[in-house]
Amino acid sequence: MSVRHRIPDEILAEYAAGDLAEAFGLVVASHVSLCTESRERLEEIEAVGGAILEDVEAEPMGAGSLEATLAKIADGPPPEAPLTFSSTDAGTYILPKPIRDYIGGDVESVKWRSVGMGVKQAILPTSPEATARLLYIPAGCEMPDHGHRGMEMTVVLQGAFLDGEDRFGRGDVEVADEDLAHMPVADVGEDCICLAAADAPLRFSGLLPRLFQPFLKI
């Protein structure tokens, strides 16, 4: 397996530090939910954050801050967000839990919009710096040939797609930037579902996809 199938350490660090745009964070959280090795790497990278916290030049707290904190504690914990799904039967879902939390259910709850040629998409509500979209691509179907103006991260959730020499299966991530133009194709055998996040509109090479661009909102 090529390293392109994993998320680079510096992106995990941005996620660990809380500086990654929400849409990309959703790709990272989905990938980590499906990949034990990346989960371990993320824990190591969070440990670096802990080591830096130990080492930082401290900022004195105000007078009476401990008492104020104990008073907050006495007021009781803040209400926990309700857990919508049990996390014990991960294997029975197609969408990993971070995405189900946005959808309110698994694939059958997604409100797909057809974008032509059998391809469907659903845009998830995230902060505006980057867009997250679920894509449904029929087996064997080509995505339009395109380049990138910023970063694009795609995690496969069902089926697989082929991009040049590479095959990306469930849990695999492709990271693309300005230097890469590509034409992903859904592998034959199963329809492909993936989550793609991008921080800039894509750049299409063909005339037809360019005409579609406003409609696709990509």
Binding site: A21, S30, A90, K97, T126, S127
Partner: peptide
């Protein structure tokens, strides 16, 4: 500060 939701990985059982 960022006023965003933070997607968290699924907790292991």
């Amino acid at each position: 500060l960022r006023k965003q939701r933070r997607p968290e990985p699924e907790d292991l059982p």
